[in-house]
Computed example of a mutant assay.
Amino acid sequence: MKKSSVLFFLILFNSHTAFAAHSLICNIENFTIPNVDISKELRQEGKRAAANFMLDDSYWSFSFYELDKMENTYLLKDIEDLEEPQSINEQFLKNYSYRLNEEVIFDNVVLETSPIMLSDLNGLEFVLIANFIKLHPDINKNEEIFVVRVATKAHKIYFSELHVNHVTQMESTIQKAKKMIDRFSDVCSIK
């Protein structure tokens, strides 16, 4: 009887360790930009890191999240039964885009999709351009960029996002945004 108790304890301990191994660790204090004042925060016991600042008359907002696939949030709608990372990533994008369009009133289009590494995980990057079209029918007003990166591991979904508002030079800002989200993502790791 003692042997089975020890075996049960070892299985329980090792499965807890396996779940704990998939966690987001961010050293947000290491994210710096010369001559830029950055507001930084860690929330939800380290499951969200964020940084915000003004640069070239635009507001830049970065976030990196760890979510459990079973969480009840708009970003994870219809994901709980999906197993393939590609399917999870595509549904995540669909949910993200829907939220922008329906609830935050941004009309948006996916400009590009690319494979990326998020920490050490394979994932996808989506670049969306958006506009307050419902408020301003002139497409050249209030253009915004969203860069979203998604990767999955076991029951966890990791994503980083960058939102840049008041974009005047779309192409150069997208290139700058990709470099900045790389720098921001580099201060986080998935263990």
Rank of each mutant, 00 (worst) to 15 (best):
T32Y: 07
A49P: 01
D57Q: 08
D57H: 05
K179H: 09
V167Y: 15
S172M: 10
K191H: 08
V147Q: 11
A130R: 00
F19C: 11
F126V: 02
A130S: 03
I88M: 06
N35Q: 11
V127D: 01
D138R: 11
Q175V: 06
F13C: 10
L93D: 13
F9V: 13
N95Q: 02
P85C: 14
T32W: 06
V104N: 14
K134W: 11
S172G: 04
I11M: 13
A130G: 03
H166E: 12
L100K: 11
I105N: 15
F53I: 15
L76E: 06
I174G: 04
E66F: 15
K176R: 06
I116R: 15
M54E: 11
A177M: 01
A18Y: 12
E143I: 12
K191E: 02
F106D: 01
Y65W: 00
H16D: 14
A51G: 07
N72C: 08
L42A: 08
Y158F: 02
F8I: 12
I25P: 01
E45M: 10
V150F: 00
R43I: 02
E41Q: 14
R99A: 12
D56N: 08
F126P: 00
F19R: 05
I28A: 04
E45L: 09
D56T: 09
I79G: 09
Q175K: 05
M170N: 05
F31H: 02
E102V: 12
N140T: 12
G46R: 03
A20N: 12
E45H: 09
C188D: 00
N72W: 04
L67M: 10
F159C: 04
R48Y: 05
G46K: 03
F53Q: 15
I190R: 08
A177H: 00
S114A: 07
F64R: 08
K77D: 13
F19Q: 09
T173G: 06
N89A: 13
E171H: 04
R99L: 09
N140M: 13
L82K: 10
L118D: 14
S23E: 03
T73I: 11
I116K: 15
K94P: 14
N30P: 14
I33L: 05
M70H: 11
V6Q: 05
I79H: 06
R183F: 05
A154H: 07
D107A: 06
D68N: 08
I11R: 07
V109P: 00
F9I: 14
V36Y: 11
S39T: 13
E103S: 06
V167A: 09
E143M: 11
L42S: 09
F106S: 01
K176N: 05
F106Y: 02
Q175F: 01
I181F: 04
F31Y: 11
N131E: 02
S119G: 11
V110T: 10
A51Q: 09
Y96V: 12
